[in-house]
Amino acid sequence: MIQNVSTVKEAWDILTRSHAGGDKMKKVKLQTLRYQYELLQMEETDKVSEYFNKVLTITNQMKGCGDSITVDDY
């Protein structure tokens, strides 16, 4: 994307524009993950370890997007 630009400013502007959508996508993904977290409940057939893995999976995905769940959140 930036190999043919002649100034650092041009390269920076192109990179900024191309990654701006990424922030919006992260917000949407975080909203989805928070919703999944709120709806998460242990099924009768789940083992404790399976449920724990579900919780860990969602929280790790949230951390990957720059957010996390704390006890104070809920």
Score class of each variant (00 low, 15 high):
1 M>P: 07
1 M>E: 14
2 I>E: 08
3 Q>H: 06
3 Q>R: 13
4 N>F: 10
4 N>Y: 07
6 S>A: 15
6 S>K: 13
6 S>E: 12
7 T>L: 07
8 V>W: 07
8 V>L: 15
8 V>T: 06
9 K>M: 14
10 E>S: 02
12 W>A: 12
13 D>Q: 12
13 D>N: 11
14 I>G: 03
15 L>C: 14
16 T>I: 08
16 T>Q: 14
17 R>E: 14
18 S>H: 08
20 A>P: 00
21 G>L: 09
22 G>V: 15
23 D>G: 07
23 D>K: 12
24 K>W: 01
26 K>F: 03
26 K>V: 08
27 K>W: 01
28 V>C: 01
28 V>M: 07
28 V>D: 02
30 L>A: 11
31 Q>S: 09
31 Q>K: 14
32 T>P: 00
32 T>F: 00
33 L>P: 02
34 R>D: 00
34 R>I: 03
34 R>S: 03
35 Y>G: 05
35 Y>I: 06
35 Y>Q: 13
36 Q>Y: 03
38 E>D: 07
40 L>W: 01
40 L>H: 05
41 Q>T: 08
42 M>N: 02
43 E>A: 14
43 E>I: 01
43 E>Q: 12
44 E>A: 12
44 E>T: 08
45 T>I: 05
46 D>Q: 04
48 V>Q: 07
48 V>P: 01
50 E>F: 04
50 E>H: 06
50 E>K: 15
52 F>C: 11
52 F>D: 11
54 K>I: 01
55 V>E: 01
55 V>R: 06
56 L>T: 14
57 T>G: 01
58 I>G: 03
59 T>R: 10
60 N>Q: 13
61 Q>D: 11
63 K>E: 14
64 G>A: 11
65 C>P: 00
66 G>M: 05
67 D>S: 15
68 S>A: 15
69 I>S: 04
69 I>P: 00
69 I>E: 07
70 T>G: 08
71 V>W: 04
71 V>Q: 11
72 D>H: 08
